[in-house]
Amino acid sequence: MKFLSRIFCTLSATLMLVTPAIAFDTAATSAMIVDQTTGTVLLAKDADRPIPPASMSKLMTLNMLFEALRDGRVTMETKFLVSDRAQQIGGSTMFLRSGERVSVENLIQGIIVQSGNDACVTVAENLAGTEEAFAQQMTDRAGELGMNASSFGNATGWPHPLQRMSARDLVFMANRLITDFPQFYPYFSQQSFEWDGVKQDNRNPLLNLGIGADGLKTGHTSEAGYGLVGSAKQGKRRVIFMITGLQSAAERASEAEKLTNWAFRQFVSKELFKQGATISTAEVWLGAEKHVPLTTEHDIASLIPLGVQSDIQLSISYQGPIEAPIAKGDQIATLKVNVAKMNPVEFPLVAASDVEKGGVLTRMIAAAHLLSKDLIGNKLGAAN
């Protein structure tokens, strides 16, 4: 399942993205919205062009910090030293003071809720020594993750010739933070955070609207315009989106709300198969069994536009017969789901059981079968 050039299976930590078939007219200059539950791209507008991400690139800074936490290099209680440079950085700030030591947990809240550039520089300097070295590490890590339209010149999103991300990369990163670091994701829906006597509200305009919004990050510079990487969950469905290039904070809020409502109200999720259900069988060559059952490692659901719920076609493809031995869990086939007004979506199918290689008798029968086919073919060729 292809989330652009990278694999991103929604049902675990990955998301399969395909070209959208139904359009939404957005004022954003660059945008993407994905139904995470099924992996369907609902909208993609200039989604692969590297653009200035402004503070939305702080999601990559947070990813680097979350990876350090996951790997045990730091803990939430680890205290980072604030430098003169961090205190003096411009733009949005957490109001850190040079020489003080601040816990990683407080810096996370300062970045997410207050969009603190000083907090980002502090994280960068304490993890990598300098912000420049940290920016290079961000760029390298983006490449490793398949975010090929991303590069970084700083940890803050401050205008810089190297500071570029695409809408697709930002949605990918949002999905990664949600799925790979669920223990930290609740910070994105935190309404406010107070540091050094200064209380600031979360800049995300969707959090209080009752539409299930729970993240992630706004961004604004004169170069980039107003942008937002957002996510919302209603029932079992979650959507993730990115918009940018809006002319004002009010237009950003309005566009984000309209896009979220459209994604939830114009599509429904239809469950097709439960995890572990036998969907079909594949023919086996030289095996102890002639067929192997095909199943899915996850529940399979498809996103359906309103009004076409009954128009669903399924097809299974594999290169076979599949030679034994086959191990349970081997991916050996693909399920394609075709829904009217939508582009096809593919799901991997795996072997539901082991199939051992057949014995001598099995191989003799197979050899005889091949020999008989060759003889028949030769006779037909001679007759022609």
Score class of each variant (00 low, 15 high):
residue 54 A to I: 02
residue 70 R to M: 08
residue 303 L to W: 00
residue 341 K to A: 05
residue 244 T to N: 11
residue 199 K to A: 03
residue 30 S to T: 12
residue 292 V to Y: 04
residue 376 I to W: 15
residue 251 E to N: 09
residue 66 F to V: 14
residue 134 F to E: 00
residue 142 A to H: 03
residue 135 A to I: 01
residue 28 A to H: 08
residue 378 N to G: 13
residue 334 T to H: 07
residue 202 N to D: 03
residue 245 G to V: 01
residue 222 S to C: 10
residue 167 A to K: 03
residue 171 V to I: 12
residue 222 S to M: 12
residue 75 T to A: 00
residue 337 V to H: 00
residue 111 I to S: 10
residue 190 Q to A: 08
residue 176 R to W: 11
residue 297 E to P: 11
residue 368 A to Y: 10
residue 372 S to E: 11
residue 202 N to Y: 07
residue 275 Q to H: 07
residue 227 G to E: 02
residue 212 G to H: 02
residue 308 V to N: 06
residue 340 A to K: 15
residue 362 T to H: 02
residue 362 T to D: 00
residue 279 I to E: 06
residue 314 L to F: 12
residue 34 V to K: 03
residue 51 I to N: 11
residue 13 A to T: 13
residue 353 S to W: 07
residue 62 L to G: 04
residue 298 H to Y: 03
residue 225 G to A: 10
residue 71 D to C: 09
residue 254 S to Y: 09
residue 362 T to Q: 07
residue 167 A to G: 10
residue 124 A to Q: 02
residue 288 A to K: 12
residue 9 C to Y: 13
residue 263 A to Q: 05
residue 328 K to C: 08
residue 87 Q to D: 05
residue 312 I to G: 10
residue 138 M to D: 02
residue 36 Q to K: 09
residue 242 M to E: 07
residue 176 R to E: 14
residue 102 V to I: 15
residue 271 E to N: 09
residue 126 N to A: 11
residue 330 D to T: 14
residue 346 E to M: 11
residue 212 G to C: 09
residue 38 T to S: 01
residue 32 M to Q: 13
residue 336 K to F: 05
residue 217 K to T: 07
residue 236 K to Y: 06
residue 42 L to Y: 02
residue 357 K to D: 06
residue 35 D to M: 02
residue 48 D to Q: 04
residue 127 L to E: 04
residue 197 G to Q: 06
residue 284 V to I: 15
residue 289 E to D: 13
residue 218 T to H: 05
residue 150 S to G: 04
residue 294 L to D: 01
residue 281 T to V: 08
residue 249 A to L: 09
residue 279 I to K: 12
residue 145 L to C: 02
residue 69 L to V: 00
residue 332 I to T: 04
residue 157 G to S: 03
residue 163 Q to F: 08
residue 107 L to I: 14
residue 356 E to P: 02
residue 63 N to Q: 11
residue 69 L to W: 08
residue 59 L to W: 07
residue 234 Q to K: 11
residue 367 A to D: 08
residue 300 I to F: 07
residue 29 T to N: 14
residue 344 P to V: 04
residue 181 F to W: 03
residue 224 A to F: 10
residue 227 G to V: 01
residue 286 L to K: 12
residue 338 N to T: 14
residue 198 V to H: 11
residue 364 M to A: 13
residue 313 Q to D: 06
residue 323 E to F: 00
residue 357 K to E: 13
residue 302 S to P: 04
residue 275 Q to A: 15
residue 130 T to R: 02
residue 247 Q to Y: 05
residue 97 R to Q: 15
residue 336 K to W: 01
residue 177 L to H: 01
residue 31 A to T: 05
residue 315 S to Y: 12
residue 357 K to F: 08
residue 127 L to K: 05
residue 149 A to R: 11
residue 193 F to H: 02
residue 126 N to F: 06
residue 224 A to T: 14
residue 225 G to Q: 07
residue 155 A to W: 15
residue 74 V to R: 06
residue 296 T to K: 10
residue 82 V to A: 09
residue 293 P to Y: 05
